[in-house]
Design a protein around this nucleic acid. Structure first.
Lengths: 343, 343
DNA sequence: GTTAGCACTCAATCCATTAGAGTGCTAACA
DNA sequence: TGTTAGCACTCTAATGGATTGAGTGCTAAC
């Protein structure tokens, strides 16, 4: 059977009503609610068709209809029209405190959760392809060197390196020159064993110190490769009782608290990039098992130099997709702006 | 009325039973449960006395008894005396790397939550009056200077400062010397307007750059004095339905997620130090309003140089106090070990 | 002082009934 | 042929009365 215009209209009305109320939608409601001027009986017939086609289902016999995953999918794909309102307030919230990346991303998660009333998730950008801009060694005290590593999007990492004996100033200067000569402009993958070996050779008597330095650098790199994930508003999920039993919700909250499976989710979103950067996972489509009863909407943002991150919303299947999508789009845009300014 | 030995025994039996089951305890249960060989009627009489004395209450007429806050308090005090395994004094050296510490403390929170099935809370050690240890200016590119500021607990802060024109190497060197001469070892209070003025004067044409640096310094010191708090196992709270309505629990979870009032709690524990380092807050005694229906057990640990931190458990009033207390004691001991090894 | 016994209380559970929201089907209608 | 009115039917949720049973308080007897 083909889905015609009227069926589409009815389906849309049903889903949209269900999104608001969370209750199964009856034929009479639709008969009154839409401007189709059809009786409830006719709507019922259409509903039967739509159920047959797999877009709707009844939670139990002779109850109203609720959308299936397939129904949501159609709704999301075909009927999404963006709402651009409500964005201004959010922008001001965002700009209040933007000094450090970490606190900014946390802030983003908070704003997102607060504005949508769902759970929010933000991943820090991954810098696999970024290049080293600057390395600086300096002596903090007799037992410690400080290595400051600046990546070209101005992400800065610090490492404290224990040393056996104090170094002279000009020695430090020499090492700094050496390090910057070899490593400036190198991407993090470029720093391989061979290069390390070369540098160590040239470091002469400080090869040993260099050992500690490289260890610090690799640690820093490793740390940079790790995806930080911030979540917020997990407790919002308690507001949607239709997420089934308490156990299911508890599992979900635990997953959010412990970041279980969130790595996979982030990976998935980064690799499975759509045209718009927006992706919607409905019910069983989600890559995380504890979220099978939810929907996830994600957007990827991109800094210069190919560093990408994900922001997303986890909510009930009956989430306000329009609002969430437009919120995410605006926020990624905003993030882009901010990062550009910081450069 | 005086509380005699038998009453105490009965009270303990009641509380201990209630801790297990979470259900009001009846006289018959106690009659069988204890080795007192008393009939339920006698127990009932005693129970009435205990209720009159404020240790027990009935959730409704003709139900069994449950402990009041006062009852719990007696129980806990009594228990502490009996167990009396003394806390060894915790002396540890300053931690080498603060960044490692973060993940360790997170781990501690996780272990704590997992083992007790309550919510866990860990605060990073607090250094009052952090002092500036080292400051380094360097040039990242033509438009930016990088100021690296190391505070004496090895908290490192970076600040990028935009500049109009590139600076010469020896100029930078001069500024570095200037800054370190004046500021090394200074605490936040030391860095007053007068000092800033002096330095700015000596900086000559770079007074403007100095502005940004001072800002970075104050931020860094503030950050060092800020208490990081890690939580885990918040979702465990969903397992205890007697925490009243869902709203109350939601509030609690939100407080844990957003760290609302946790600062106050940590402050309280640090100032209100008991002999053993263990503190128990029951019901209304808790400093955080969203936890009035819970109990909180905390332990403080102490690093060298007066840096103190808190680890704690938040759970229902009927928590397994013995287990929690001994777990906390063990963990603080464990922390002690770890810090010593890292010396 | 302790206990047995009994009347009483009250939340929880069960059960039957009802209300009502909604469907499916059929027959009539335009 | 598509639409609609009408009606029987289904199933959940809500209601409320009866019942259960754990547990108390009191009294009288040991």
């Amino acid at each position: 059977m083909e889905i015609d215009d009227r069926k589409l209209k009815i389906l849309k009305a049903i889903i949209s009503n269900y999104l608001e109320t969370g209750e199964p939608v009856g034929s009479r409601t639709i008969s009154k609610f839409t401007d189709l001027n059809l009786s409830s009986a006719t709507i019922r017939n259409e509903m039967q068709d739509l159920e047959e086609m797999g877009f709707l289902k009844q939670p139990y016999t002779s109850a109203g209809r609720i959308p299936t995953d397939k129904g949501y999918r159609l709704y999301v794909d075909q009927m999404m029209v963006e709402k651009d309102s409500e964005m201004e307030e959010m922008k001001t919230q965002l700009l209040e405190r933007v000094d450090k990346m970490e606190s900014m991303l946390k802030q983003v998660a908070k704003v997102l959760a607060y504005n949508t009333n769902y759970a929010a998730l933000v991943s820090a950008p991954q810098y696999q392809n970024s290049k080293l801009k600057f390395i600086q060694l300096s002596q903090v005290d007799d037992n410690q060197m400080l290595a400051v590593i600046v990546v070209d999007n101005n992400v800065i990492r610090n490492k404290l390196i224990p040393i056996d004996r104090p170094m002279e100033n000009d020695e430090i200067l020499k090492l700094n020159v050496l390090l910057n000569t070899f490593l400036q402009g190198a991407s993090l993958q470029d720093i391989n064993l061979e290069m390390i070996h070369t540098i160590k050779n040239q470091a002469g008597e400080y090869a040993e110190v260099m050992e500690g330095i490289f260890q610090g650098i690799t640690e820093a790199i490793h740390e940079a490769d790790e995806v930080e994930i911030y979540t917020n508003g997990a407790t919002n999920m308690l507001k949607y009782p239709e997420l089934g039993n308490v156990e299911q919700t508890t599992k979900l909250l635990e997953a959010l608290e412990d970041r279980q499976g969130l790595d996979e989710l982030i990976d998935e979103t980064l690799h499975n990039d759509s045209d718009t950067g927006i992706q919607v996972y409905i019910g069983e489509e989600t890559p995380v098992s504890s979220m099978k009863d939810c929907s996830i909407v994600t957007a990827t943002y991109e800094l210069a130099e190919g560093a990408k991150g994900t922001i997303g919303i986890i909510g009930p299947k009956r989430m306000d997709y329009q609002k969430v999508v437009s919120t995410l789009k605006n926020l990624t845009g905003e993030l882009d702006e901010i990062f550009k300014k910081k450069e």
